[in-house]
């Protein structure tokens, strides 16, 4: 059997699992409600695609990691974990990891992308006259920009999904699985910005380096890329971020996370740590016993 085939079979099962989990569908409906609420308050929808994207940017920075964590944190545990059995099939670990990631990513794309497409369609109906024109030149609103926005959002989702999967593999079989997944969420949402902010105020990051430093955090990189390639096209106000650094940063997080999944899958890092501690403790105990014996002797 070709490697590709195993990947496809695993990805398909993963996607079906997502589709058949009702709470994920609810999540998607919830997203749509939030989008509608945000846009009603902010009013961007009447202004066209780019104002809509600007209004949705901040909520998405929080909601996409949330969806990614929900999809990723149990990918290899509980009843989703049949690796003892899969081991007896000609399925490489790479195909398994890639398949699980791909299937869940397609699920995420549906959960997040569906409501966004719905919003895009709504803009085409109620947005300003410019919104009905496909324009590619600078300074004009266009559905193409919104598609670009969706694509960037999904790329961001892919990165955070991989991170959530990596953490879930590292801490599985321990009580901390969900807590750790949520820690990823917080780190992604606030961590990068916080580090940049701290660096800035401490004076260790100069202003011209800020764009690069910000690009390292997934959230800031996503925000920067949206501002650069969606909003910036219309407003001619760009250079918010170092684009190559942002792309490299997102790619790096994705790659490293998937590597962690790949390496962590057959080992139980949490358990290894615990065993090491146990051994250290029993050694310590023995040493103390020896010391006591020697004192007596």
């Amino acid at each position: 059997m070709s490697r590709f085939r195993g990947f496809g079979v695993v990805a398909w099962r993963e996607l079906l699992t997502v589709v058949r989990t009702r709470s994920y569908l609810l999540l998607s409906a919830g997203l749509l409600l939030v989008f509608v609420g945000v846009l009603r308050v902010a009013g961007g929808i009447g202004g066209g695609y780019v104002p809509t994207a600007v209004d949705l940017l901040l909520p998405l920075e929080l909601l996409v990691p949330l969806v990614a964590v929900a999809l990723g944190y149990r990918a290899f545990s509980g009843e989703n974990d049949d690796r003892p059995v899969l081991r007896t099939y000609p399925l490489s670990k790479s195909a398994l990891v890639a398949g699980v990631f791909a299937g869940r990513f397609v699920g995420l794309a549906g959960i997040v992308g569906g409501p966004l497409v719905a919003v895009g369609l709504a803009v085409s109906q109620i947005g300003g006259p410019e919104s009905r024109v496909f324009a590619v030149h600078h300074g004009v609103d266009s559905p193409i920009l919104f598609v670009r926005f969706i694509a960037l959002t999904l790329c961001f989702g892919a990165v955070v999904l991989a991170m959530a999967m990596a953490v879930s593999v590292l801490v599985r079989n321990s009580r901390a699985a969900l807590a750790a997944a949520l820690a990823v969420l917080v780190a992604v949402v606030a961590g990068g910005d916080l580090v940049a902010l701290l660096g800035l105020s401490a004076g260790s990051i100069s202003d011209d380096l800020l764009g690069t430093v910000l690009a390292v955090g997934p959230n800031a990189a996503y925000r920067g890329l949206v501002l650069e390639s969606v909003v910036g096209v219309v407003t001619d106000r760009s250079n918010a971020i170092n684009v190559p650094a942002a792309v490299f940063g997102l790619g790096g997080w994705l790659g490293v996370s998937l590597l962690i999944v790949w390496f962590g899958l057959d080992r139980r890092p949490a358990l290894l740590l615990q065993n090491a501690l146990d051994r250290a403790r029993s050694l310590g105990l023995r040493r103390r016993l020896w010391a006591r014996l020697r004192r007596r002797g």
Binding site: R13, R20, T21, G78, E79, D82, P84, V85, R87, T88
Partner: peptide
């Protein structure tokens, strides 16, 4: 090698 674990897991919904 085929294998039935002591506590097999199956995915709900399938």
């Amino acid at each position: 090698i085929g294998y039935l674990p002591q506590r097999p897991t199956f995915r709900s919904g399938f």
